[in-house]
């Protein structure tokens, strides 16, 4: 369980995250949605201790993220960020192997190699595993980073806009993969998403943020309703039920 208690983060007097309290239960896939500048990525960075908070507290399974030892937390929670710029020239396999660092501190064991192989296979990266990252397409690179997170094998996996720059096929594959992580491996997956329809189709819970505050939270059927979406995004839209999924049309 991730408990976010009264977390605030400001830049020069402007609160980017404003007294947010939120509890994310273990298991399932939670999407965080909201307009640009709503504080979604900042909140995710605070939860994963990449950014210090001004006030408040975040507990992951009872561990205070600003106090817990780095490697203890790294075996519990992993994060994939939006911009993964790396100066080092790494092969896909090298990158995925870094996921084992919290366990083996750079000395890979046979068990680690097995984890690496499994993660690479799971994302269908075997043909490219010895290629360098700068020789891959955007989608392949994205998958390599997801494989690294998978290899870190933590109970909590956070993804900051993992669908950025992906075409429809890869976006759908990525979301299905995150779904499988929650369903087959009982991971707790938290994803920041921009596309409401992806959030609607694949999430167990949706958390909406606006202006640094928590706006609404609930299951997709409660969240994907015109009145709430209008309040969150300030856009007129219609919601259609297609099978079990509620789809949003915001094109007129």
């Amino acid at each position: 369980m991730i408990e976010i208690q009264e977390v605030t983060k400001s830049y020069g007097g402007t609160a980017v995250v404003d007294r947010v309290s939120l509890t994310l239960p273990s298991g399932g896939l939670t999407s965080i949605i909201g307009p640009n500048g709503a504080g979604k990525s900042t909140l995710l960075s605070i939860v994963s201790r990449l950014m210090p908070m001004d006030t408040g507290k975040v507990l992951v399974d009872g561990l205070d993220v600003s106090r817990a030892a780095g490697d203890v937390l790294a075996r519990r929670l992993s994060i994939m960020r939006q911009d993964n710029h790396i100066t080092a020239r790494l092969s896909v396999r090298d990158l995925v192997a870094f996921g084992r660092y919290p366990y083996s501190k750079g000395r890979l064991t046979a068990a680690d190699a097995e984890h690496i192989d499994r993660s690479i296979a799971y994302l269908g990266l075997e043909p490219y595993q010895n290629r360098f990252l700068d020789e891959l397409s955007g989608g392949q690179r994205q998958r390599a980073f997801i494989a690294m997170v998978l290899c870190q094998d933590t109970d909590y996996m956070l993804f900051d806009e993992p669908l950025n720059n992906l075409d429809i096929k890869h976006a759908v594959e990525t979301m299905k993969l995150l779904r499988r992580l929650a369903d087959d491996f009982a991971k707790t997956v938290v994803v920041v998403l921009h596309d409401i329809n992806f959030a609607s189709a694949y999430s167990d819970r949706i958390v909406a943020m606006q202006g640094g505050r928590l706006a609404f939270e609930g299951p997709p059927q409660d969240m994907i309703v015109p009145s709430r979406l209008q309040a969150i995004f300030d856009v007129d839209c219609r919601v259609h039920a297609v099978g079990d999924t509620r789809l949003v049309n915001y094109f007129d």
Binding site: S45, L50, G70, D71, A74, I79
Partner: peptide, 8 residues
């Protein structure tokens, strides 16, 4: 970020 994420 990646280094912190890996517990360094």
């Amino acid at each position: 970020e990646a280094a912190i994420g890996l517990g360094v």
